Computed example of a mutant assay.
Amino acid sequence: MLDLRAKGDLQRLVDEGLEESLTLDYKASPALTRDGKGPDELCKDVTALANSAGGQLVYGVEEDKVTKKPSRVDDGVIDPKVTREWIDQVLNSRVQPRMNGVQTARIDMGTGQFGYVISVPQTQTGPHQAPDGKYYKRFDLQSVPMHDYEIRDIMRRSTTPDLYTELWFDGRLKTHTPRVDQGTQNSETVMLHCVVLNKSPTPAHHVVVDFFVDYDLPIPFQVGPFKSIGERDEAPRPKMRIFRRVINSPPDLPIFKDGEVEQHSGVVPVQIPIEVLEGGNIYLETSIQAPGFTTTEEWLIVARTGQLKLVSPKERRTPRTHPYGWSDD
């Protein structure tokens, strides 16, 4: 989510020409009104974000209808009875089922009037129905009705686990500089930690986690619960070693939402060849399977002049000035 707290933040959106997207929707302040279809349109646009990938609805920014870029910050909502409390009341009373985690920020426009930024997480309890009885999604920068299969997919999301992995080096660090002893071809052993987490209120009782590690990395020894089960050699994808662990409840603890326990963590020790450590990419993948759920996440370790930087799947999809987030600092 964008950090939008003041009029200057909205002005930066205009100055940078940040276009509308699946997760960003601009509205001029007059669109936020208590009259006519105003409340229903508010519910329609907020539920469309929740039923899609989540995002932000910004009232107070006019949009160029041709370029889809913001054109100017306006003076704010005229009606003084349109407040954060009113917005919350409308959403809570007109949207079914009720949405969780929606946050509304009031923006002082310096005119005695206010704009509003509504931040909407992706739903885990929906789909959410607008007052007209329809279910909406974000598509092609609009709020459009959903198809039956899309509604069913969101319903499945609310009744199945939503699992993901987090990786780090020792100390929960995302960067690491391993020691290299003179006369050796590889670095000291580097511990790659992997934990399985859950974003859904539905706990996961039976989970299979595969950890794919770049084949070029020597594995000096194995540490349970991950066990080597073979290799994957499917060009053009990089050749990988496969390590697997299985979580079964009982005797293991289920994986609950927002709960991290040591029992769901594991370690794979690796060594880094010196030529890779000086400058190269190391490929990692995690694959999770559970009843009604499966996902694969692609991770990366970027090596640069002896330092390792762990790059998450999200960061890989949104590179910055340098690939994978390296800075010139």
Rank of each mutant, 00 (worst) to 15 (best):
E85H: 07
L173W: 11
D108M: 02
M191H: 11
V144W: 03
K134C: 03
F139A: 12
R94L: 03
D170Y: 08
Q124T: 15
G171P: 14
Q142M: 12
P70Q: 02
R172D: 11
S119F: 03
N100I: 08
I78F: 07
E62I: 01
P80W: 05
N198V: 14
Q122G: 10
D74K: 09
H128I: 09
K65H: 13
K137F: 01
R94W: 01
M191A: 07
H193I: 04
V180P: 03
V66D: 15
V95R: 05
V117Q: 00
S158N: 03
V190T: 11
M191Y: 13
Q122V: 08
Y164W: 14
I87Y: 00
E85P: 03
Q129P: 12
V117W: 01
I118E: 04
Q142S: 15
D64V: 02
V196C: 15
L197M: 14
W86E: 04
Q96E: 12
W168L: 01
K69L: 07
G171H: 11
K65N: 13
V73W: 01
D153S: 15
D162C: 13
L197R: 15
G76E: 09
K69W: 02
G115Q: 06
T189N: 02
T189H: 05
T125R: 12
M155S: 13
K65Q: 15
V77S: 02
F114V: 05
P127E: 10
N186R: 08
M99A: 04
I118K: 04
T123F: 05
G101S: 10
L163K: 04
P161I: 09
K134E: 11
R156Q: 14
G115I: 03
F114K: 06
S187L: 13
I154F: 09
Q96I: 07
K174Y: 09
T175N: 10
R156E: 14
K134I: 02
H147Q: 14
T165E: 07
I154D: 05
C194I: 14
P80C: 04
M146H: 07
R94G: 00
R156G: 09
R72S: 08
T104N: 03
V180Y: 10
R172F: 11
H147P: 05
T111W: 04
L163S: 00
T177L: 05
D181I: 08
G112H: 08
W168P: 04
S143C: 03
P70C: 01
Y116L: 01
K81D: 12
Q182K: 12
V190F: 04
K174M: 12
K81Q: 07
M155C: 10
D88A: 00
T189E: 11
P121L: 12
E150W: 09
T175A: 08
P80G: 02
V102P: 12
P145W: 06
N186V: 15
I154K: 11
S158I: 06
G76P: 02
Q113L: 15
S93E: 15
E85N: 12
R157G: 01
G76L: 11
